[in-house]
């Protein structure tokens, strides 16, 4: 990435931007991984069942859903 650094040098204090970008970027992913790891089984189940939790299923399929849940 030397070439990037060289070009960016032309602007005053520009070197801080990619560093901020990198830190934000990295911090975001660390934060996300921690968040995801700490989610409990119940939460994940609750969240991921949100689309299934309404009555838009056809009558025939509602029966399937009940069986699945059991």
């Amino acid at each position: 990435m030397k070439i990037v650094t060289k070009t960016l040098e032309g602007i005053a204090d520009i070197q801080i931007y990619p560093i901020i970008g990198l830190i934000l970027f990295f911090a975001m992913f660390v934060f996300l991984i921690i968040h995801v790891v700490r989610l409990t089984r119940n939460q994940v189940d609750e969240y991921s069942n949100l689309p299934l939790d309404d009555n838009s299923n056809l009558l025939s399929e509602k029966k399937d859903l009940k069986n699945n849940k059991n």
Binding site: V36, V44, Y47, S48, L52
Partner: peptide, 21 residues
Amino acid sequence: LPKAANRPVYSYKLSIIHFWA
């Protein structure tokens, strides 16, 4: 997809990472 398959998405955790990445 979950609606049509009548089952929740495989990994909700993966979907969070998927989105932000």
